[in-house]
Amino acid sequence: MKSIVRRKLPMTWALLISLLLVVTLSTAAYTAAAPKKPAIESEVTLATTTSTQDSGLLDVMIPAFEKKFKNKVKVKVVAVGTGQAIQLGKDSNADVLLVHARKSEDEFVAQGYGIKACDVMYNQFLLVGPKDDPAKAAAAKNAVEAFTKIAEAKAKFVSRGDDSGTHKKEKSIWDKSTIKPQGSWYISAGQGMGETLRMAEEMGAYTLVDEATFLTNKTNQVILFKGDKDLINPYGMIQVKSTRKKVAANELIWFFISPQGQKMIGDFGKNKFGKSIFVPDFKWRK
């Protein structure tokens, strides 16, 4: 017994000493490194599309982010069309983008304007229209067929016509149908989603709308077609390379893709609409 204790004692000491060393060294290293880690900037500008703003998602996400940093950072949200959001990024007038137009996003990164591009979440587009559905679009098997039926019936269709993510999605479906939409039935509104939806309702016309805007607007339009893979609406987040708010921009993206942020996105809307509006699907882009 005695011999074992004697033999063990130096080892315990050695362990203790090494532990102490590790602690002191790492603390020293930490305190030495800490001043080098820059503090978060006092504000950061997020350029996003009207759909994320109008849905109310940002009213939940942004305060939670600011609270995480003890309100030392303020997020300024600029909600505009996707085209304008991307231009804001190119001109260094925004620090982070949260948009939904994959092709333009990829170009933005490829041209060297953006870094840390990732998928954040998606929601879906709905084809909505008047209850009586004059073009019988509800009977279509897929989105392309539904669009074709509308064009063949020359039933009124209101297009965003503003180069937004939603407009680009609509154009891609027309392209697949090989129909070139034109004529008095095809109305190019050149306005935001809420306005376009309202115009479609007034005119008894069809339109393509993102689910978030549809759920958050009062409208008598009914959903006629949904669930096609062509109608998936993916949102991406990109840090503007030339940003002067590097820390805050980085933290904001990390907040949206963190398990906490992704859960908040998935839970959003459950209370108000009985279902979630956005599906979190974080993935870095290659």
Binding site: G83, Q84, A85, G161, D162, D163, I187, S188, G190, G192
Partner: peptide, 18 residues
């Protein structure tokens, strides 16, 4: 487009497009 688009509303539209 072609019906009620005027100069001021085009300016807004083009701004939104970037």
């Amino acid at each position: 487009e072609h019906v009620t688009r005027v100069m001021t509303t085009s300016i807004i539209l083009e701004t939104r497009k970037g």
